[in-house]
Design a protein around this nucleic acid. Structure first.
Length: 569
RNA sequence: UGUCUCAUGGUGUAAUGGUAGCACUGCAGUUUUUGGUACUGCCUGUCUUGGUUCGAAUCCAGGUGAGACAACCA
């Protein structure tokens, strides 16, 4: 019988194809019932939401089946890697809500890998090649034409042993020699055409210092590291499918009589519409200053999403909802937005904020009078209670909440029409003023005292309720609005266009004259709120007590905006 | 003229030879002191051609389309 440790945790009743494989292996008694997975990031960049998908799977499988999941930094290339990234990767994994059972580095296995290489040389299965990278590439052939053998291919094991140990001793220059597996230069799988195992790199490694002058390449490291570590299920993305036969080849030579063998399984990587998801492209955006950094709220990095206001729960729910298959598709960004709205709707306190303010003067309300009216902190969770918000004669309202010539289905302010001011009174619009350009600056209205919230006057109904802040109580704030980074849904389809030409010039809009409720003076960095009727916003790390700065995580769904938008076309 | 892989509504994902379901989106409506939320209903799908079978999204064969692979990257 299969013991499912946390079946209810995911709430899913159907298994994805990887879980099915795991359960079959368990049922067959494979590996003595052990389940060991690993998350193997290269410490050469920041984690993004695509990594989150892998993390949820690697850690999720281990958790669900009572196994273990290791964090293993794949640090085989000191040229590209840096400790700087190690810390941010660990932070992001923990922020997402996962904890590794063991922390390893591929470099922990350099000794064992080196010994295995010596063994393969002795068995006549590896040789030292003295040719240049260019020559070796030329000899590789193409997917449809076979390659040709290196002239150094038939060196004796003794000679290879001598040369390889001298490579490691530092006797040769970088690029002058490599160690290659001797397999088949005409193999239909390009990766079998005598793949490179080791190259000379005279660079200090962030963990092993100057111990090594030769470093293993991915194909000679990953599978063996999995083996050394006792990994049972090595989960990776689809592009490694063609590497699997080579993975198996090396592990087979390594494992001896043992029955145990790690199994590589590939799943589809994450693509999301209007997003850039490759490390190379993200790096370019950062380097060319098209975004403010790796944690720019427009970036799909975990630190960027965090700064944007995404919660770990919302990301986990999103990942859970998209599943794991072998179909290489593109997820609609709307699904990601839905996951954060769903989460924040339940937990974000409501506050009032006016992004594009115009004045609303309640002409029949006494000057100097202030009422503090109770309002729900979150109507989805009444247990959170209420807080008091000020109401007075002079208010700010959204520019969008007044129209000079309004259509019948516009439920907001226009001369002669009535709306409710949230948690206060119903007002009737009496007039407006404009500046020299004809832009509305002030709207006037009269309030109906008998319509105050909470009073038993159910007769008087209005279609619309709008929000406001009191001019003498509100705080100034900067609000940063974000839009999709790309103008194109699926950049992979635009084969002849550079993605830098598809950047949305309006991906960031900075509003410097927003007005917010006084209670926000106490908000802390990264706190999330719903700005009533507008969207979810959080406090940016740039924010100070003198200068409040908010990021729009995501807007609320906007039915009126949709109607108005269609009409404008 | 290679190897490997994939193909179910607009998007993603189930159905493991036996009623094509779910989520998101879209549309319509109910509720609402957020044009939010919640709730209800609706639209839309098995790439194609054969075969096996009482029965095929599922198995088999051919086609079509898409992706990955030719770094001293991972």
């Amino acid at each position: 019988m299969i013991e499912v440790v946390n079946p209810e945790e995911t709430g899913k009743r159907t298994l994805n194809f990887i879980e099915q494989i795991v359960e079959n292996d368990l049922a067959a008694g494979k590996n003595g019932g052990r389940i060991v997975t690993r998350f193997p990031p290269e410490p050469n960049g920041y984690l993004h939401i695509g990594h989150a998908k892998a993390i949820c799977l690697d850690f999720g499988i281990a958790k669900r089946y009572g196994g273990t999941c290791n964090l293993r930094f794949d640090d085989t290339n000191p040229v590209k890697e840096d400790v700087e990234y190690v810390d941010s990767i660990m932070e992001d994994i923990q922020w997402l809500g996962f904890q590794w059972d063991n922390l390893y580095y591929a470099s922990d296995y350099f000794g064992q890998l080196y010994d295995f290489a010596l063994d393969l040389i002795k068995r006549g299965l590896a040789y030292v090649d003295d040719q240049s990278a260019e020559t070796i590439a030329q000899q590789k052939g193409t997917p449809t034409t076979p390659g040709i053998n290196s002239p150094y291919r038939d060196r004796t094991p003794e000679e290879n042993l001598d040369l390889f140990t001298r490579m490691q001793a530092g006797e040769f220059e970088e690029g002058s020699r490599v160690l290659r597996a001797k397999i088949d230069m005409a193999h239909s799988n390009m990766h079998f055409r005598d793949p490179l195992m080791y190259r000379i790199l005279k660079m200090s490694h962030h963990r092993t210092g100057d111990t090594w002058n030769v470093y293993p390449l991915y194909d000679f490291a990953h599978g063996q590291c999995d083996f050394f570590e006792g990994i049972t299920h090595s989960l990776c993305t689809l592009e490694f499918e063609v590497h699997r036969p080579l993975y198996d080849y090396f592990v087979e030579l390594l494992k001896g009589e043992d029955n145990y063998k790690p199994r590589q399984i590939e799943f589809n990587r994450l693509n999301i519409t209007y997003m850039v998801m490759s490390k190379r492209k993200m790096l370019q955006l950062v380097k060319e200053g098209r975004v403010a950094g790796w944690d720019d709220p427009r970036m799909p990095t975990l630190c960027g999403l965090r700064r944007r206001g995404y919660t770990p729960e919302s990301i986990r729910n999103f990942v859970d909802s998209i599943g794991y298959t072998k179909y290489d598709g593109v997820i609609d960004v709307g699904l990601l937005e839905h996951s954060i709205r769903e989460d924040l709707n339940k937990r974000a306190p409501r506050v009032s904020a006016v992004l594009n303010p115009i004045k609303l003067i309640v002409t029949n309300y006494p000057e100097g009078q202030v009422e503090w009216n109770a309002t729900d902190i979150n109507p989805e969770d009444k247990a959170l209670g209420t807080r008091d918000v000020p109401f007075s004669r002079a208010l700010y309202i959204e520019r969008d909440d007044f129209m000079i010539d309004a259509p019948a289905d516009y439920y907001r302010l226009s001369v002669g029409r009535e709306v409710r001011l949230k948690n206060a009174y119903i007002v009737r619009c009496t007039g407006y003023e404009t500046d020299a350009e004809g832009l509305v600056t002030t709207v006037t209205c009269e309030y109906l005292p008998e319509t105050k919230t909470g009073q038993a006057n159910a007769k008087h109904k209005v279609k619309g309720t709008i929000h406001y802040v009191s001019t003498s109580h509100c705080l100034d704030a900067e609000v940063r609005l974000y839009d999709r980074l790309l103008t194109v849904a699926n950049p992979a389809e635009e084969k002849d266009r550079d993605f830098m030409d598809m950047l949305n010039p309006d991906s960031l809009t900075v509003l410097t004259h927003a007005k917010v409720e006084p209670v926000l003076a106490a908000a802390k960095t990264l706190d999330s709120f719903q700005f009533t009727r507008l969207g979810y916003f959080n406090v940016d790390p740039d924010s100070t007590s003198d200068r409040l700065i908010f990021n729009r995580t995501v807007s609320l769904k906007d039915t009126w905006g949709k109607i108005a938008g269609k009409r404008a076309q």
